[in-house]
Computed example of a mutant assay.
Amino acid sequence: MPLIARPQSGRQQLIVAVDTADPAAARQLCTRLAPEAGLLKLGLEFFVANGPAAIRAVAGEAPVFLDLKFHDIPNTVAGAVRSACAAVRPAMLTVHASGGAPMIRAAREAAEAAGGDRPAVLAVTVLTSLDAATLSETGVAGGPAQQVLRLARIALDAGADGLVCSPHEVSRLRDAFGEAPMLVVPGVRPRGAAAGDQARTATPAEAIAAGADWIVMGRPITGHADPVAAARAAVAEMPR
């Protein structure tokens, strides 16, 4: 079974994205924010600069969402998942749903073969930075919502534990698939905050009310003058 359990409410539903290549800055943020969040997300920027051993060095014993979005042939992705399980022991990791059913199935099987409690395998549907026009340029017709549902069905049928989607698709996914899949939702911004490079956004209250299990917030917290206060304010916005 997955290492991570579905959160109950409030602080447990917040994932803080620690998006920096600087290990000292990451360590400071992780130390301050681990008590305020359910998980810490470390992704490509940090991983490429510092390697897998540094993930645990900065996160300590806090649960880690390893967001590397694996997308390759099934054998390569399976190997990457095995390596991640051994080196990082993440609570969650990501693959791209667009990698197809055999790749997702290989990721799930590799996670299970790692032994013990395994990470939740989450399939990234459509990145929150993409809108209908950008998808159309890549040959995807029908807009983000249709593509998210299409990829979600492939991923869940192949064994993914859950999905990563924008706030705009959460309620559609709940209608289509019920409560079973874990839904992790980036593109969340506090009320009044700038969207930045995110195209499909919502507030913490809106995302949770729509059915998100976890919300992911990065720069609105880590770039704030008082990151702890920003994290607590985000949690305070969530429905209780």
Rank of each mutant, 00 (worst) to 15 (best):
A87H: 11
A202N: 07
I73K: 04
A193R: 05
I215C: 01
P35E: 04
A234H: 02
S136M: 03
E45L: 07
S9V: 14
V48L: 14
A87M: 12
D226G: 04
D175N: 10
I221F: 09
V140M: 07
V124G: 03
L163S: 03
D157M: 08
G159E: 01
D175T: 07
C30H: 10
A24W: 05
C85R: 07
D22T: 08
E179A: 15
L68R: 07
R174E: 01
C30V: 08
L40P: 03
I15C: 01
S9N: 13
R89K: 15
T134G: 02
I215L: 11
A207C: 14
L68E: 00
G192R: 12
T20M: 08
A132H: 06
D131W: 09
G223R: 11
A210I: 09
C85P: 04
G196T: 04
V184M: 01
P74V: 09
V58C: 04
A101L: 13
I15D: 03
E169K: 03
R89A: 14
G100S: 11
A24C: 02
V121F: 01
R150I: 11
L44F: 14
Q147I: 13
P2W: 05
D197W: 11
V88S: 01
F47H: 11
T94C: 10
A234D: 02
